[in-house]
Design a protein around this nucleic acid. Structure first.
Lengths: 345, 345
DNA sequence: CTGAAAGCGCTAACAA
DNA sequence: TTGTTAGCGCTTTCAG
């Protein structure tokens, strides 16, 4: 039973660097150097190695490499939920930024719970990711996940932050965004005729928090209704407003997904946007330009945020300098659509 | 310079199992067994180990584990593009299905190119994923990526397939879906008054292919315009139709994202849906119920597909049986919205 | 039930 | 420039 049997049925050992080395008549170290390009290799050997690699169909085992190098060339990203198109948009821009640079972006999507978020963070840390990009679920209760991440690996919070943890944060200036909305509403809407209400996410995330505060700063007396960042909350909130007898109004929302739900519910009930109700969103996800009417919204500078994260991560990984904790709120931009007056003809 | 200096500045070694073992006064093997639960450990030792783990803040290095076990407890998913909400929807459902089972779903999003797709596959294989779920970019040219994947690891193609590679495939029955659309159009539309055109994705993916063929089978003479699966293609196609003088019609599209672009362009040009133009989509992503008018579409059975993949992967990983190649086309369902007649009042 | 020891595949010191 | 060797952190025989 101890015969040197190769092949046959069952799991087949895959090809290793040692196999390639033997086949090419060089040492494993030479193969490693030839493939990584980290150190010079005589061009003749390099060709022999390459030929053996091709012939054997070898490809490097990244687990072995990661164990040895103590890093994996992965940037892990943890988002609360795969289903929310805003998070997909963030991932999309980030992967475009990181893609060309060798490290690759891998995405973990939670179910909105703190437990799953922590699992995601733990898992990435245990897999020796080079860096972690984290959109925290909760402004306070995600502290465990964020501080674990920060202690273990280069970590950047994105869009939402747990403050005071010494962790980097890249986001947009939500208060400024809401100021833009407030100015727009003041200029374009007769708020006596179409009274303003705010429909946002609970201030349990920093974005929800800042957007609510930011808007109330300019419209202090406005009623506000808070739920989660979802289309169904937008629908439900409008359902309540209509049930309460509201027939005209200006609905300022905390996110495009909420706004889309709101518009949908308004229209389903037979009212019009922007005739009866004006609606504004926040984030500037692609779809907001395509719904009918197109959404007036605040566009986050996705590209700028993505490249800021990229630069920050590169700087942190570069042993040269020790950058201070970076907290940047990028300026957003008002995009006037047809869900509120003042857009193009 | 050779003093045993611990701490201080610079990178700190992280805690290993050996540290825990020393601290608890047991062997590393015992720590391993205690933490994995793979083998019985005396309850007293188990407590000691647990205490040490807590005190030292140890967490297992998954790279070391993966190297030793030759598997990583990761299921890798490769999609052509993070930006397409249909792929996010697939990922969302899949992660809900895999989440509770210990293995976790990690998502790689490409840029639509074959090179990047291959990179994603290579990377996951090199990281010893337990299984790979792949939405291939191209019906033919993704063969390299799919067959590499299939040779190396349990692989399931999702939604789109490269045929004849002996790889599993889970998708929906696109022809049947298009039959539902065709029947709906025949029953509800005066096609003499509102002539039918098909706007789809290029038949370079199996879905694009089957949806086009499937519809033409029932409406053989219909003009068709093919581009990519994107909202901008939907807009552009409608732009061309309008430029060619079309003012009334029934636009059957190959995907919700195309339909959303189409509706948007129709409305932007001052025409109405469903008055002037009827539009149908395909896929049943969430947003299609919320646009105005809501989209008549074919909903893919996301939950059923996700759990089919889960079962298939579990079965393949279970050394017990050797399941045959599975190719399943799940039955989709027509959802009648207001973008075509026949919906609820 | 527990410990000692080997080794997963790779790369970085060190020697030549 | 190349080879030899050690060891990253873990699990799993194999002994006891």
């Amino acid at each position: 039973m101890n015969t040197k049997q190769t092949g046959g049925s069952g799991a087949h050992r895959s090809i290793t660097m040692a196999d390639v080395a033997r086949h090419a008549g060089v040492s494993p170290a030479t193969v490693s150097r030839a493939l990584s390009g980290n150190r010079p290799v005589a061009s003749e050997l390099l060709e022999r190695v390459q030929a053996s690699v091709d012939e054997l169909g070898y490809s490097v085992n990244l687990v072995g490499r990661a164990l040895r190098k103590q890093r994996s060339s992965i940037v892990g990203m943890v988002v609360p939920d795969f289903g929310n198109p805003f998070f997909s948009t963030l991932a999309h821009h980030l992967s475009r930024t990181f893609g060309p640079s060798g490290t690759e972006l891998l995405l973990f999507g939670g179910d909105g719970s703190l437990e799953t978020e922590l699992r995601g963070v733990r898992s990435f840390i245990g897999r020796q990711v080079d860096a972690l990009v984290l959109v925290p679920v909760h402004e306070v209760e995600s502290a465990a996940a964020v501080s674990l991440a920060t202690r273990s690996v280069v970590t950047v919070q994105l869009d939402r932050q747990v403050p005071d943890l010494g962790a980097h944060f890249i986001g947009c200036d939500n208060r400024e965004g809401m100021r833009l909305v407030a100015d727009h509403v003041r200029e374009q809407v007769d708020v006596a005729d179409q009274p303003v209400v705010f429909v946002g996410g609970e201030p349990t995330s920093s974005s929800g928090h800042e957007r609510l505060d930011g808007f109330l700063e300019h419209f202090p007396e406005v009623p506000h209704h808070l739920g989660d960042f979802s289309t169904s909350w937008g629908q439900e909130a409008v359902g309540r407003l209509l049930a309460a007898g509201m027939r005209r109004g200006t609905i300022v929302t905390g996110a495009d997904v909420i706004a889309i739900g709101a518009v949908s519910a308004i229209q389903a009930a037979g009212h019009s946007v922007p005739g009866d109700f004006r609606v504004t969103g926040f984030d500037g996800i692609d779809i907001s330009a395509l719904v009918h009417p197109s959404l007036t919204t605040v566009r986050q500078p996705f590209e700028a945020m993505a490249s800021a994260i990229h630069r920050l991560v590169e700087a942190e990984l570069d042993p040269g300098d020790e950058p201070a904790v970076t907290i940047t709120q990028h300026p957003p931009e008002l995009v006037v659509g047809r869900s509120s007056p003042g857009g193009a003809a």
